[in-house]
């Protein structure tokens, strides 16, 4: 081991640690130059509001990515949570969000259990779950918009209350990201998740409870998606299968990947995912600032997703990728 390669390793770690923040800062600077009034006006508040649901879904996604799997169903599960709570907030009040969170966490756990028991690829399983959740949302709402009839104040404070111009929900999401970071970094289970992502057989042969950890990852994915669903309700007071929050899947995966999460597993820093989510939330403003048609937003999201995964993927020359 030469001094140079140690230096290169440290540089690589540094780039990984600071890259997402730098990418976000770059886009922010671009926006600030093109639209100077953006930062002074309500801009930061709007970005924080839009970033929060993306961040929460992305946090769940990055735990699943940490074990080398993917959850294509969690955004739809989050929307289902929003619909459930829109239906139940009136009659149940405070109990409603807790109940809905419990339901979607169990859906995530169910995903995990089916995965470890049947050993099918996670993208196929969660694609199926995605279809089921979409159908469930349509059936439960009767294909209509469901408005919260009563007890809106149970969730409204998340975005109504602002601290230093940013909604309180954003701070909560950031705190959760920090908590998740600590969990992954300082606990045996967190280290086990990472070991599974890097080398599943070695983790199993070291006695890691691989199945339990996989179920845990998918359960967390469902839980965080549920929190995103509650944010949707808090922002709009209504939910429908095609309304706000129905389009979180690709933005949230892009946020996780821009945040430095490796799609091959093992490598993820939830704190950096915060920057990834803010970057993705800033894309509409940023692309408008450089003159991109707002209708072309999907193109930008898709492009960011592909570029981010290509840039963060660690690959060896002879590996077979399918």
């Amino acid at each position: 081991m030469t001094a140079i390669s140690i230096g290169a390793a440290r540089f690589g770690q540094m780039r990984h640690a600071l890259g997402p923040a730098a990418i976000f800062a770059g886009l922010l600077a671009l926006v600030a130059l093109a639209v100077p009034e953006f930062l002074g006006g309500g801009g930061p508040s709007i970005i924080a509001q839009q970033a929060t649901p993306i961040l929460l879904v992305a946090l769940g996604q990055c735990v699943v990515l940490q074990i080398g799997s993917i959850d294509l169903s969690n955004a739809a599960t989050g929307l289902f949570c929003a619909i459930l709570s829109a239906l139940t907030l009136g009659p149940l009040g405070v109990a409603s969000p807790l109940l809905c969170l419990a339901v979607v966490t169990l859906i995530g756990v169910g995903n995990g259990l089916v995965l470890v028991y049947t050993q099918i690829p996670s993208f196929a399983l969660t694609l199926g779950t995605l279809g089921v959740m979409q159908a469930a949302s349509l059936v439960v709402t009767g294909s209509n918009v469901v408005y919260v009839m009563d007890n809106m104040d149970v969730v409204a404070w998340l975005f109504a209350v602002q601290v230093w111009t940013l909604p309180v929900a954003f701070y909560i999401a950031v705190l959760l990201a920090v908590a998740l970071w600590a969990f992954l970094r300082f606990t045996a289970s967190g280290q086990g998740l990472s070991a599974i992502g890097y080398n599943e057989r070695a983790a199993a042969l070291s006695g890691q409870p691989v199945r339990a950890l996989k179920v845990l990852a998918f359960g967390l994915s469902g839980f965080f998606a549920g929190l995103a669903g509650l944010c949707v309700i808090s922002i709009s007071g209504a939910a429908s299968s095609i309304g706000l929050g129905s389009d979180l899947l690709v933005p949230s995966i892009a946020a996780a990947l821009v945040g430095g999460t490796a799609i091959t597993g093992g490598l993820c820093n939830p704190v950096n995912v915060v920057f990834g989510a803010m970057f993705v939330a800033l894309i509409p403003v940023g692309s408008a600032a450089v003159g991109v048609d707002p209708q072309a937003q999907s193109i930008v999201y898709g492009g960011v997703l592909v570029v981010a995964v290509a840039a963060t993927m660690s690959r060896s020359r002879n590996a077979i990728v399918k």
């Binding site: 690709v250 799609i263 209708q295 999907s298 898709g302 997703l305 592909v306 690959r315 399918k322």
Partner: peptide, 30 residues
């Protein structure tokens, strides 16, 4: 992209799904 960047095809095609929708939206216009 899948072959050259060695990125799993499901994630590339997920991105292209959105790119396609975006192209359609741009063509649709206002």
């Amino acid at each position: 992209i899948h072959v050259l960047a060695k990125v799993p095809s499901f994630i590339v095609s997920l991105g292209i799904w959105y790119v396609g929708l975006g192209i359609a939206a741009v063509l649709f216009g206002y």
